[in-house]
Protein backbone atom coordinates (compact mmCIF):
# COMPACT_ATOMS: atom_id res chain seq x y z
CA UNK A 1 0.00 0.00 0.00
CA UNK A 2 1.15 3.48 -0.79
CA UNK A 3 0.49 7.07 0.19
CA UNK A 4 -0.68 9.82 -2.15
CA UNK A 5 1.35 13.01 -1.65
CA UNK A 6 0.19 16.43 -2.87
CA UNK A 7 2.02 19.76 -3.11
CA UNK A 8 0.45 23.18 -3.60
CA UNK A 9 1.22 26.77 -4.57
CA UNK A 10 4.83 27.98 -4.33
CA UNK A 11 5.98 24.61 -3.03
CA UNK A 12 4.40 22.83 -6.03
CA UNK A 13 6.26 25.19 -8.36
CA UNK A 14 9.56 24.81 -6.52
CA UNK A 15 9.32 21.02 -6.70
CA UNK A 16 8.02 20.96 -10.28
CA UNK A 17 5.46 18.42 -9.09
CA UNK A 18 1.88 18.56 -7.88
CA UNK A 19 1.54 15.00 -6.69
CA UNK A 20 3.15 11.61 -6.44
CA UNK A 21 2.34 8.16 -5.17
CA UNK A 22 4.93 6.62 -2.90
CA UNK A 23 5.31 3.23 -1.24
CA UNK A 24 5.74 4.23 2.36
CA UNK A 25 9.39 3.51 3.24
CA UNK A 26 10.08 1.37 6.30
CA UNK A 27 10.62 3.37 9.47
CA UNK A 28 8.47 6.35 8.50
CA UNK A 29 5.72 6.74 11.08
CA UNK A 30 4.80 10.45 11.00
CA UNK A 31 4.22 13.13 8.38
CA UNK A 32 7.27 14.96 9.75
CA UNK A 33 9.42 11.91 9.01
CA UNK A 34 7.86 11.70 5.54
CA UNK A 35 8.72 15.37 5.01
CA UNK A 36 12.34 14.71 6.08
CA UNK A 37 12.57 11.65 3.79
CA UNK A 38 11.40 13.68 0.77
CA UNK A 39 13.60 16.69 1.63
CA UNK A 40 16.66 14.39 1.78
CA UNK A 41 16.36 13.73 -1.97
CA UNK A 42 18.38 16.91 -2.50
CA UNK A 43 17.51 19.80 -4.81
CA UNK A 44 14.80 20.87 -5.35
CA UNK A 45 13.25 18.70 -2.61
CA UNK A 46 15.05 20.53 0.19
CA UNK A 47 12.34 23.18 -0.30
CA UNK A 48 10.22 20.94 1.93
CA UNK A 49 12.68 21.58 4.75
CA UNK A 50 13.18 25.29 4.06
CA UNK A 51 9.59 26.45 3.40
CA UNK A 52 8.71 28.79 6.26
CA UNK A 53 5.82 27.55 8.42
CA UNK A 54 5.20 24.53 6.17
CA UNK A 55 1.66 23.23 6.62
CA UNK A 56 0.54 19.62 6.28
CA UNK A 57 -2.83 17.96 5.87
CA UNK A 58 -3.59 14.26 6.28
CA UNK A 59 -6.75 13.08 4.55
CA UNK A 60 -7.72 16.74 4.02
CA UNK A 61 -7.43 17.80 7.68
CA UNK A 62 -4.70 20.22 8.72
CA UNK A 63 -2.50 18.52 11.32
CA UNK A 64 0.86 18.81 13.08
CA UNK A 65 4.09 17.22 11.81
CA UNK A 66 3.97 14.62 14.60
CA UNK A 67 0.76 13.11 13.17
CA UNK A 68 1.01 9.41 12.24
CA UNK A 69 0.95 8.48 8.56
CA UNK A 70 -0.12 5.10 7.24
CA UNK A 71 -0.63 3.37 3.92
CA UNK A 72 -3.65 4.66 2.04
CA UNK A 73 -3.42 8.19 3.47
CA UNK A 74 -3.53 11.36 1.35
CA UNK A 75 -0.80 13.70 2.62
CA UNK A 76 -0.55 17.30 1.39
CA UNK A 77 2.31 19.75 2.01
CA UNK A 78 1.81 23.47 1.37
CA UNK A 79 2.83 26.99 2.44
CA UNK A 80 0.59 28.97 4.82
CA UNK A 81 -2.75 29.72 3.16
CA UNK A 82 -3.53 33.16 1.68
CA UNK A 83 -7.17 33.08 0.60
CA UNK A 84 -9.95 35.50 1.38
Amino acid sequence: MSVKILFFAGLREALGSGSETLDLPAGIATVGELRDFLAARGEPWSALATTKNLRVAVNQQMVGLDTPVKAGDEVAFFPPVTGG
Binding site: F8, A9, G10, E13, N53, A57, M62, A76, F78, P79, P80, V81, T82, G83, G84
Partner: peptide
Protein backbone atom coordinates in the same frame (compact mmCIF):
# COMPACT_ATOMS: atom_id res chain seq x y z
CA UNK B 1 -15.80 33.13 9.47
CA UNK B 2 -13.60 35.53 7.47
CA UNK B 3 -10.79 35.41 10.08
CA UNK B 4 -10.79 31.61 10.15
CA UNK B 5 -11.10 31.34 6.36
CA UNK B 6 -7.95 33.47 6.04
CA UNK B 7 -5.84 31.06 8.09
CA UNK B 8 -7.50 27.64 7.68
CA UNK B 9 -9.02 27.30 4.21
CA UNK B 10 -6.50 25.99 1.63
CA UNK B 11 -6.41 28.81 -0.92
CA UNK B 12 -3.25 30.47 -2.25
CA UNK B 13 -2.94 33.71 -4.22
CA UNK B 14 -0.36 34.28 -6.94
CA UNK B 15 -0.09 37.86 -8.14
CA UNK B 16 0.90 38.86 -11.67
CA UNK B 17 2.80 42.11 -12.21
CA UNK B 18 4.78 43.47 -15.15
CA UNK B 19 7.86 42.28 -13.20
CA UNK B 20 6.61 38.70 -13.07
CA UNK B 21 4.57 36.46 -10.78
CA UNK B 22 4.85 36.15 -7.01
CA UNK B 23 3.07 34.09 -4.40
CA UNK B 24 1.46 36.18 -1.69
CA UNK B 25 3.03 35.70 1.75
CA UNK B 26 0.82 34.85 4.69
Amino acid sequence: IMDYLKTRAPFWKKEETLQGGRWVDA
